[in-house]
């Protein structure tokens, strides 16, 4: 019989081994994803990839047969994503900011608490539900898939993120900041515009960039609102492509498998870069408070 004390030590050692083992196993799939992205995606890194629109199925089949790289690129996806993103930001940021300020300033009121719950439900809402709602309201009413339908869907998805970022930022500011501004006789609007926002601009911008990086990866609602397009489209009322839609389209076409990885790699790197920029801004424009 091992003494109980020795048993405890064995358990502890066993525990350590299990933790190391499981952590290692957990990291493997992620490493595999990155490895595959790099291995299969770097084939297509050439200027054409970013300056040409996506190839048709026939072009792809021919290229596959002759062993060449599939021609064409993802320009329509890049332009579409950016276009939709721009409109989404215009729709979401002012509104989200105001709602965040409202929630923060009226925290205890009944209506505000109700709004906070609604914002929480929005935050966790599956994107496909938002997609089909926009389909019913916009795509069906106007009888066409369109870029702006996609933007509206993404706006509804992005709104709770901006609201939360604004609220968290404001919560991190001490109350005396607002009070000193008001004690100087300033109006509430003045204090928000000239004291609160300049002090917190770093955090707000970071929140925006992180929300943008999450929105860029969204696919499902776009499938039912913007549909996709094989050309670069700047008409807001017509279907547009996006990087994620391209990945979806390519993956549904067995001959375009190579394009899938290259496009995914591009998307992934873009998102990582955005996150790095966001972290850098958070560090550089950190909210510094007096006497810390």
């Amino acid at each position: 019989m091992i003494s109980y004390q020795k048993f405890r030590i064995y358990i502890d050692k066993f525990f350590h081994v299990i933790v190391y083992l499981f952590s290692f196993i957990a990291l493997i799939p992620f490493l595999s994803i990155i490895w595959t992205l790099l291995k299969k995606g770097l084939i297509h890194v050439n200027p054409n990839f970013y300056t040409q629109t996506s190839p048709s199925a026939t072009e792809a089949i021919l290229a596959n047969l002759s062993g060449e790289i599939i021609p064409g690129g993802i320009l329509n996806g890049i332009c579409g994503s950016l276009y939709i993103l721009l409109i989404t930001i215009i729709l979401t940021v002012p509104l989200g900011f105001f709602i965040g300020v409202y929630i923060h300033e009226n925290r205890k009121q009944k209506f505000s608490i109700f709004i906070q719950y609604i914002s929480a439900i929005f935050y966790g809402m599956p994107s496909i539900i938002i997609g089909i709602t926009v389909y019913v309201f916009i795509v069906k009413s106007f009888h066409s898939f369109s870029a702006w339908a996609g933007s509206v869907a993404l706006s509804v998805l992005m709104l709770p993120m901006i609201i939360r970022a604004t609220d968290e930022t404001l919560k991190s500011l001490p109350t005396y900041l607002k009070e000193s501004g008001l004690a100087l006789g300033a109006s509430y609007t003045s204090v928000i515009l000239r004291v609160i926002i300049p002090t917190a601009k770093g955090n707000l911008l970071t929140g925006l960039l992180i929300s943008v990086s999450r929105i860029l990866g969204v696919t499902a609602p776009l499938i039912v609102t913007t549909l996709g397009c094989s050309m670069v489209n700047w008409d807001i009322t017509k279907p547009t492509s996006s990087i994620t839609l391209l990945i979806w389209n390519f993956s549904n076409n067995p001959c375009m498998a190579d394009m899938v990885w290259s496009t995914s790699l591009f998307l992934f790197i873009f998102i990582i870069v955005l996150n790095i920029i966001a972290k850098h801004i958070a560090w550089k424009w950190k909210i510094t408070l007096p006497h810390e």
């Binding site: 799939p29 994803i33 990866g217 969204v218 696919t219 998102i271 996150n275």
Partner: peptide, 21 residues
């Protein structure tokens, strides 16, 4: 590393699942 992975778009996970998993 995990922070970066938290930002993986679900569609890329789906692609990996389809082609690798």
């Amino acid at each position: 590393f995990l922070n970066i992975l938290a930002g993986i778009p679900p569609i890329i996970l789906g692609i990996w699942g389809y082609y690798s998993l």
